[in-house]
């Protein structure tokens, strides 16, 4: 789920960036530092949409670095248990398949794939129904439900299922 929230961060800036462009430097450094990161609480920071305010800088003894408290608005993406997501399949193997929904990697175990879909090994490993009408392979788009998340410092990993009503392939690259 996406959220637009305000976060705060202390940015350390090297004195060489002081001057007219201090603010720009600060913001660009913030973007560089923050975008794409992941925190357990908020999930992935997708983009910074605005700066609320920049506090007064404090010079740190000894280094000359200045730290600025910055409040910024950003879009974060945090998957939740039970959430329905659409994701792109990135890898298929006999244990299931991996799909990505933006920065989040989701694993769908073969136990969580409908029983009528069977793993077909080959050049393009895939899960196919017995009549061949539905096929999950790399680059397929699937709709899945997250049943568990694991949040690391730098990564959110989810387990999903497509063994439920209205879940499964929504767009097949081969037919499209």
């Amino acid at each position: 789920m996406f959220f637009h929230i305000v976060l705060e961060r202390n940015m350390q800036l090297h004195p060489r960036h002081f001057g007219r462009n201090l603010r720009e430097n600060l913001v660009s450094k913030l973007m560089k530092d923050v975008e794409g990161t992941c925190s357990g609480q908020h999930g992935f920071v997708v983009a910074i949409t605005g700066i609320e305010n920049i506090g007064k800088g404090m010079i740190r003894d000894g280094t000359g670095f200045v730290s600025f408290p910055i409040k910024y608005q950003c879009v974060v993406f945090r998957p939740f248990k039970g959430e329905i997501l659409e994701a792109v399949v990135t890898m298929v193997n006999k244990m299931g398949f991996f799909a990505e929904a933006g920065p989040v990697q989701i694993f769908v175990s073969n136990h969580l794939i409908p029983d009528d879909m069977e793993f077909q090994i080959g050049d393009m490993p895939n899960y196919t129904t017995s009549d061949g009408s539905v096929k999950i392979q790399k680059d397929s788009e699937v709709r899945l439900k997250i049943i568990g998340t694991r949040v690391d410092a730098t990564e959110i990993f989810c387990i999903g299922t497509i063994k439920d009503d209205f879940l499964g392939v929504i767009n097949d690259p081969t037919t499209a």
Binding site: G96, S109, H111, L112, G148, I159
Partner: peptide
């Protein structure tokens, strides 16, 4: 846990 079969769990 990806699947619970009776009292056997399948864990990823």
């Amino acid at each position: 846990v990806v699947k619970v079969e009776q009292h056997v769990l399948i864990i990823l």
